[in-house]
Structures are given as structure tokens and as C-alpha cells.
């Protein structure tokens, strides 16, 4: 309906040519195009913001899977990120695992937590699920800030950066080459998931769980799968956040404020629209950074934008983009069919 439209508004000829090559080729081209980005960025701080952007894209894409595709109202996604981040931190500092082992392990831990969030979703719907996930998120944060060996309220410090052979990827520039490919990979997988039978099952559950069950979709199974997949994304984002340059985690990074920011990315971009979510994540990260000095006004603005977007623009940016594409395609078709009458409906 919304999400599975054409990837990017590229010219029809190029699209026809791309259809002949393997679907991963355009992604590799994008990867190549994004590789020299650190060269044009003015300073390390901008690079840091770009890395945060990549992490937020992973997070928003993951949230979109459970919220947009499968239609499950979860507001505790930030807790899964916290679990991933702290799991990765503990594994790499206490057990001495390298980043490349700690990150998949942290993703698995987050996925287990995601399954535990998903199991209540089998019995709970809508608002109840929102409550349960909100409660879980707050509990995780309170647990972290009350537990000594997780750094309690002081924070968890000394998380090592990833090593590539002898090189420590401890600068923001080097970290970009970890975060950006992972973000693209996540994006690629989310399209694959959406196109697969799992994605179709998610969408059928979103539209009508009862009808989906009647058509042979194993609703409980796919609900849990949706939560697990989105938790994998959140765990990956959390792990990336943990190992980024200062190597420092604080429970206050996972409050309701952060959840609102994350929610804004998905809502503003359009729930259930992958590219919308990506654009939302990038825009919100930029705005978040530009308005850093106006902390109190910023959260008020974010909240107000969420309220107004849901009321007046329920499909978000993605909806606007879709409408634009559909209208353009329609106009092209009409123009091709009715060439003699262009004077009447020229616009």
C-alpha cells in the first residue's frame, strides 16, 4: 500500500536498466557514493553527527518493521537499544570480546529481550501493548540506573572501540566506515523482509489479524518474529552507540525523551514507509543537533510536531512522497494517452 513503492524517484530508463542487474548492485553503488563522505565534512563533530544519523537510521528502520509493517504499537523500543548497548559494553569490557563478536552477541541478547516483549503482544493489543512496552522501557532504565556493575547513575565508561587488525577505529571518521555500511545493510534487509513472505504476513497482520489468521497466517509466530527482527536492529544500533568514540553509556540516554525523538523520526517520516523513516531519521538528527542549545523548547517542539503530524498528516512525509509519485505517474500516463487534448488539462 505505502511502503513497497519504487525505491527512489529515478528516471524510468535508468530504472529499466537497473531491473536487469542484480538488486544488490544499486546498493553497492550507493555504498561507493557514500564512502568519500568524510572527505567533504568540515570537522570531526559533523562526522559524529553523521554517525549518529546512521545509528538512528538503523533504529528507525527497525522500529518501522514492528510498528509500520506488523502494526504493533510499541513505545519501548529505546529499551531494546539500551539492552543492546549495555550487553555489548559488558561483553567487551568484562569478557574482553572484540567489537566484531560483541555486536552480534548484543544483537542476540536484544533479540531475546525483543521476544520477551513480543510474547505479551500475543495477548495484548493496541493500547495495552503500548502500556506494557512503556513499562518495560522504564523498568529497564530504572534497573540500569540502580545497578552498580552497570555503572548505575554514573554511567558505564571505558568501552573499547572496534579494532580492525592493529588499527583502532576510535576516531569518528574511522567509525563512519563501521556505522554507514551497517545502516545500508539494515536498510537493504528491511526491503528484503518487506518483499518476502514474512513481510506479507506482517502486513496482513497489520491490516486485520483475524483475517490473516483465517487465511492461514500463523499470527503469534509472525508477531514474535516482527519483535525479534526489530530488536536485532535496535541491538545493532545500541552496540554501535556503545562503541562509538567516547565509549561511554549513561541510563539517561534511554529516557522517554529519546523515545519521543525516535517516535518522531518514524511518525514524521510516515509509519510503515521505509524511505520515509530514513528521511525522518536524518532530518530529526539534523534538527536535534541544530537545536541543541534550546533544550527545553526542542522537546516541546518535537512533541507538538508529533501531535500535529498525526492529526493533519497521518501518513507522514512518506505519504506525501507516495502521493507525488503516484500523481506524476498518473499525469505521465494521461499525457501519453491524451496527447491531442493537452490544452484542456495541461496542468
Amino acid at each position: 500500500m505505502t511502503a513497497d513503492s519504487a525505491p527512489l524517484p529515478i528516471a524510468a530508463g535508468v530504472r529499466a536498466r537497473l531491473a536487469q542487474v542484480h538488486p544488490i548492485v544499486p546498493w553497492l553503488l550507493v555504498l561507493l557514493a557514500l564512502l568519500p563522505l568524510p572527505l567533504v565534512l568540515p570537522n570531526a563533530y559533523t562526522q559524529y553527527v553523521v554517525n549518529v544519523m546512521a545509528i538512528n537510521v538503523i533504529l528507525a528502520v527497525g522500529l518501522n518493521i514492528v510498528k509500520g509493517f506488523a502494526g504493533q504499537v510499541t513505545v519501548g523500543h529505546i529499551a531494546l537499544m539500551a539492552i543492546g548497548a549495555y550487553a555489548s559494553a559488558v561483553l567487551s569490557t568484562k569478557l574482553g570480546l572484540p567489537f566484531w563478536a560483541a555486536m552480534p552477541a548484543a544483537m542476540l541478547v536484544a533479540a531475546a529481550a525483543g521476544a520477551m516483549v513480543g510474547i505479551p503482544s500475543l495477548r495484548l493489543e493496541g493500547a495495552y501493548l503500548a502500556l506494557a512496552t512503556l513499562g518495560l522501557a522504564e523498568s529497564v532504565r530504572i534497573f540500569i540506573s540502580g545497578t552498580e556493575w552497570l555503572g548505575a547513575a554514573i554511567g558505564f565508561e571505558g568501552i573499547p572501540p572496534p579494532y580492525l587488525g592493529p588499527w583502532a577505529l576510535d576516531s569518528h571518521y574511522a567509525y563512519y566506515y563501521v556505522a554507514m555500511p551497517l545502516a545500508l545493510l539494515g536498510l537493504y534487509f528491511s526491503f528484503s523482509i518487506l518483499r518476502s513472505d514474512i513481510g506479507r504476513a506482517f502486513k496482513s497482520i497489520r491490516e486485520d489479524a483475524l483475517a490473516a489468521a483465517a487465511s492461514g497466517v500463523n499470527v503469534p509466530k509472525y508477531k514474535v518474529i516482527a519483535f525479534v527482527i526489530s530488536a536485532l536492529y535496535a541491538g545493532c544500533a545500541g552496540s554501535l552507540q556503545a562503541h562509538m568514540a567516547p565509549g561511554f553509556l549513561h541510563p539517561n540516554n534511554y529516557t522517554i525523551t529519546e523515545m519521543i525523538t525516535l517516535l518522531l523520526m518514524v511518525v514524521f517520516g510516515g509509519i510503515g514507509h521505509i524511505w520515509g523513516g530514513v528521511i525522518g531519521a536524518i532530518l530529526v538528527t539534523i534538527i536535534d543537533d541544530l537545536t541543541r542549545d534550546y533544550y527545553e523548547y526542542r522537546m516541546m517542539m518535537f512533541g507538538a510536531v508529533i501531535v500535529l503530524v498525526v492529526i493533519f498528516m497521518p501518513r507522514g512525509l512518506g505519504g506525501i512522497i507516495d502521493d507525488f509519485l503516484v500523481r506524476r505517474r498518473f499525469n505521465v500516463l494521461r499525457g501519453a494517452r491524451q496527447t491531442p487534448r493537452t490544452d484542456v488539462h495541461a496542468a
Partner: peptide, 15 residues
């Protein structure tokens, strides 16, 4: 619509 309400309530609370 219920999901919209949850999100709006969330936004309203932060506002």
C-alpha cells in the same frame, strides 16, 4: 486510529 491516539498522547505528554 488507536495507534494515532497513543502517539498523540505521548507527544502531548512531552509538550
Amino acid at each position: 486510529a488507536g495507534m494515532g491516539m497513543v502517539i498523540v498522547g505521548f507527544g502531548m505528554s512531552i509538550v
